[in-house]
Lab assay of single mutants.
Amino acid sequence: MATGGRRGAAAAPLLVAVAALLLGAAGHLYPGEVCPGMDIRNNLTRLHELENCSVIEGHLQILLMFKTRPEDFRDLSFPKLIMITDYLLLFRVYGLESLKDLFPNLTVIRGSRLFFNYALVIFEMVHLKELGLYNLMNITRGSVRIEKNNELCYLATIDWSRILDSVEDNYIVLNKDDNEECGDICPGTAKGKTNCPATVINGQFVERCWTHSHCQKVCPTICKSHGCTAEGLCCHSECLGNCSQPDDPTKCVACRNFYLDGRCVETCPPPYYHFQDWRCVNFSFCQDLHHKCKNSRRQGCHQYVIHNNKCIPECPSGYTMNSSNLLCTPCLGPCPKVCHLLEGEKTIDSVTSAQELRGCTVINGSLIINIRGGNNLAAELEANLGLIEEISGYLKIRRSYALVSLSFFRKLRLIRGETLEIGNYSFYALDNQNLRQLWDWSKHNLTITQGKLFFHYNPKLCLSEIHKMEEVSGTKGRQERNDIALKTNGDQASCENELLKFSYIRTSFDKI
């Protein structure tokens, strides 16, 4: 039985969820670079991206490699990797027998973001014989899940209580170790020597080791999670996991709180800001991140802002960003909400898709409305799209047979046209069989910064309504002859009103 693990408890099935942008060198404390989270699957090609990484700022997932063999891993080693800020997950990587050479110096898994409450997941690794993470000293947050690894031993010899604050939620089941077939031998045991430290858990006094050649490092209890030197002297209180010299914040392997210019500090002093819960960055760093993602459509890219001495992905609820200094300031009234469309555009074809934009005031991208039916549609669209004030790209209304009016965009005031449909149009209306009105132009103002209007096959939309939009939106004169079809717009509506004058002759039985 794995020490510190839980057996036999019912657990939810383990679901495996399925960018080499360097964020800056980590400095003297770390020998390499800070790398983003990685999802490495199918083959070993991307694994080489770990070569210079000291910190993975995010998670590391290595999974679904069915053609790899043990010899493929023999020359692979990433000794610079010290810390993973989120979680480490391995799933069905064939041929991998140990992690001792792959990650010989991995010391800390912070667990800032977890995989279903777990910071370390080893699942269905069919050839893994031992973990071998002999320098792993601290899992700051989260638990361990090690399950269905039929060859995995050296679990009962690990004292997880020396690595985690609590072992109650560890789930370590259905491994070879369960069948008591392992016969784990710690260093020196074969020669009758006791080389590794022994600890007591559940009444068992057991030597602690990761492999037959690597003991588990056990520091004096007084050192807590700070770690200790090879001689057993406690590291500085700002260290986490390990250090090369005692009581020196510049000799830590990793930091308990924050890293700044080669030393570990309790908090980031001005003019620095907390970033990702582990390091200090200056304003320029946060500003660069903001600008890199301002026009990016890459998933996970955030326009970072500053709030409460932190550089964070977005302002919290009730705050909006001051564009001059990136500071989050309290909103006066309802907060603006910028919604970034991942692929640059979004099609609204149902109430469900409209709900995804609920509360958005600025759309960074283009909207395509293609709704053919739905219950209580006008009210639903207004509830979900009615706060949109600005669209950076274009607005396209296409084959939306259920629409009679666009009044559900009740606050839309600006279409920038930074991206144009077919390279020309910022407003595009095609084949809307029941569209009769755009907006009530006596109450609604709309500016279209650039781009043209396109109207074709809107049989109940009168040309007068379209011409009014040209005047109000500032697009009059931009359109070419064929942009607004004269014969297919309003051709099934009563669009022309003329005053009919009647004269009559009164007659009676005795007068003409």
Rank of each mutant, 00 (worst) to 15 (best):
G32M: 05
E33R: 13
E33N: 14
E33M: 14
V34H: 05
C35M: 01
M38I: 13
D39P: 02
D39V: 10
R41S: 07
N42T: 12
N43A: 11
L44Q: 05
L47V: 05
H48D: 14
E49F: 03
C53L: 00
S54Q: 15
S54K: 14
S54N: 15
G58R: 00
H59E: 13
H59T: 05
L60T: 01
L60C: 05
Q61F: 06
I62S: 00
L63E: 02
M65F: 09
M65P: 15
F66W: 04
T68A: 10
T68F: 11
R69K: 05
R74F: 04
L76V: 14
P79M: 03
K80E: 02
K80Y: 15
I82M: 05
I82E: 07
I82R: 11
I84C: 02
T85Q: 12
D86A: 03
L89V: 00
F91E: 00
R92Q: 05
V93R: 01
V93I: 07
Y94Q: 05
Y94K: 11
Y94F: 04
G95N: 07
G95F: 08
E97P: 06
E97T: 07
E97K: 06
S98M: 02
L99N: 00
L102K: 00
L102H: 01
P104Y: 00
N105E: 04
L106W: 02
L106Y: 00
I109G: 00
F115K: 03
F115M: 04
F115A: 12
F116L: 04
F116A: 10
A119K: 00
A119R: 00
A119N: 02
L120R: 01
L120C: 03
L120G: 00
L120T: 02
I122E: 00
I122D: 00
F123P: 00
E124Y: 12
M125T: 14
M125V: 01
K129Q: 14
E130G: 04
L131N: 02
L133M: 03
Y134A: 08
L136R: 01
L136W: 00
N138L: 12
T140L: 07
T140C: 10
T140E: 03
G142L: 01
G142F: 00
V144T: 05
R145I: 08
I146L: 11
E147D: 12
E147P: 00
K148S: 09
E151C: 07
L152P: 00
Y154N: 06
L155C: 15
A156E: 03
T157S: 06
T157R: 13
T157P: 08
I158P: 05
D159N: 13
W160Y: 05
I163W: 01
D165T: 06
D165Q: 09
D165Y: 10
V167C: 12
D169H: 12
D169E: 15
N170W: 06
N175H: 14
N175L: 09
D177W: 05
D178K: 10
C182S: 08
C182V: 02
G183F: 10
G183H: 13
I185V: 15
C186A: 07
G188Q: 14
T189G: 15
G192L: 15
G192P: 07
K193G: 11
T194H: 14
T194W: 15
C196P: 05
T199Y: 05
T199C: 07
T199W: 07
G203W: 11
Q204P: 10
Q204S: 13
C209I: 01
C209D: 01
C209R: 04
C209E: 04
W210E: 08
T211D: 05
H212F: 12
H212G: 06
H214L: 09
C215D: 08
K217C: 02
V218R: 12
C223S: 02
K224E: 10
S225P: 10
H226S: 10
G227W: 11
C228M: 02
A230E: 13
G232R: 02
C234N: 01
C235N: 01
H236R: 03
H236W: 02
S237R: 10
S237W: 08
E238Y: 04
E238K: 04
L240N: 10
N242A: 11
C243K: 00
C243A: 00
Q245A: 14
T250N: 05
T250Q: 08
C252K: 01
R256T: 08
N257S: 12
Y259M: 08
R263D: 03
C264K: 00
V265S: 04
V265P: 01
V265C: 11
E266W: 14
T267E: 07
Q276Y: 09
Q276R: 11
D277Y: 15
D277R: 05
N282Q: 10
N282S: 14
F283K: 15
S284N: 05
F285A: 08
D288E: 07
D288G: 10
H291Y: 15
K294T: 15
K294V: 09
N295R: 13
N295E: 06
R297C: 06
R297I: 07
R298M: 07
R298P: 05
R298F: 11
Q299R: 09
Q299I: 05
H302E: 08
Y304L: 05
V305K: 10
H307G: 05
H307A: 06
N309C: 04
E314M: 06
P316T: 03
T320E: 12
T320F: 09
M321V: 14
T329A: 15
P330T: 10
P330E: 02
G333T: 03
G333E: 13
P334R: 15
P336M: 08
P336W: 13
